[in-house]
């Protein structure tokens, strides 16, 4: 309860960020309750009703297979949350571990951080594309690939932050009282990094949406039958002149969600430890 109160305090006096937070809650609810909200099966094809205009019973119209766009958008929210959270977990766990261990064990760090430098020599989407050529199109692989791409930046950020903390007195005190390496890293250093990590997570979540949509658009992301906002745009783009609404709704959903996540990340960044503020580059 106390944590929730601290979290909500970050949004005091920030109208736009508060609206963003509310929007994200709506997306989250839609993701959880998708089967209850969606009026139709997102995969059900109805050729008679293809390319119907928005109205009733099809709120967002239907696509060229006659599938209900509103239901697909609701299930798309579920996919957005899965891709976002999945990429965040992969990026923070792998990147975080590499960054922290590298800063703590200097010799290991020399090797690991050079490896990160090499991966960072590949522009983000290019790295994702190359990795996707080696893997099949699937939800898991998309998550892993986007996660790895952002693990590199996360590793570099955590490396810098852990280095700063390593010299602090409380770490010396822990060493003197006989704490082991694991205990120092995870019980003394890590708790100080939780809030900057959450800020980083919010930006990765936002970027992941754009990357996943770009991969879907290029035909190298999620399998085409999966209802995601990126796939909706990718599949219906050739009908843009006949049915422009088919691109407006999923596009607006992506923009609103990424924008909201960036606003929330910005609000959170302003209230974290000032030592770490400049380390995290959001939008």
């Amino acid at each position: 309860m106390n944590m929730l109160r601290t979290f909500l305090a970050m949004f005091r006096g920030r109208k736009l960020a508060t609206i963003g937070l509310i929007w994200l809650c709506i997306v989250g609810l839609a993701a959880i309750a998708a089967p209850l909200i969606a009026p139709f099966d997102p995969l059900e094809i109805d050729p008679v009703e293809r390319l119907s205009e928005p109205g009733l019973p099809y709120l967002f119209g239907t696509d060229h297979f006659g599938r209900d766009s509103f239901s697909r958008a609701i299930y798309g929210a579920r996919m957005a949350v899965i891709i976002g959270l999945g990429s965040v977990i992969v990026a923070l766990v792998t990147g975080g571990l590499v960054g922290m261990l590298s800063a703590y064990f200097t010799r290991l760090g020399h090797v690991l951080m050079r490896g990160i430098d090499v991966l960072m020599a590949f522009p983000a989407l290019l790295l994702a594309l190359v990795l996707m050529t080696l893997l099949e199109r699937s939800v898991t692989n998309t998550i892993i690939v986007i996660g790895i791409v952002y693990a590199t930046t996360t590793a570099r950020i955590l490396f810098g932050m852990t280095l700063k903390l390593k010299g602090e007195t409380f770490v010396d005190a822990a060493i003197c009282s006989g704490a082991g390496h694991g205990s120092i890293l995870f019980r003394h250093i890590l708790p100080n990094l939780i809030s900057p990590l959450l800020v980083q997570a919010s930006f990765i979540f936002a970027f992941a949406q754009l990357q996943a949509a770009a991969l879907d658009f290029l035909g190298l992301g999620l399998p085409p039958e999966v209802p995601s906002w990126g796939n909706m745009l990718s599949e219906e783009r050739i009908y843009v002149t006949r049915a422009p609404w088919l691109l407006i709704f999923p596009g607006a959903l992506i923009i609103l969600s990424v924008f909201s996540m960036n606003l929330v990340g910005d609000a959170m960044r302003d209230s974290i430890d000032p030592r770490f503020k400049d380390d995290i580059a959001g939008v």
Binding site: L210, G251, I254, I255, F259, V283
Partner: peptide, 9 residues
């Protein structure tokens, strides 16, 4: 807002 728009869209 512009940084949140997918390029292809």
């Amino acid at each position: 807002l512009f940084a949140s728009v997918p390029t292809f869209w």
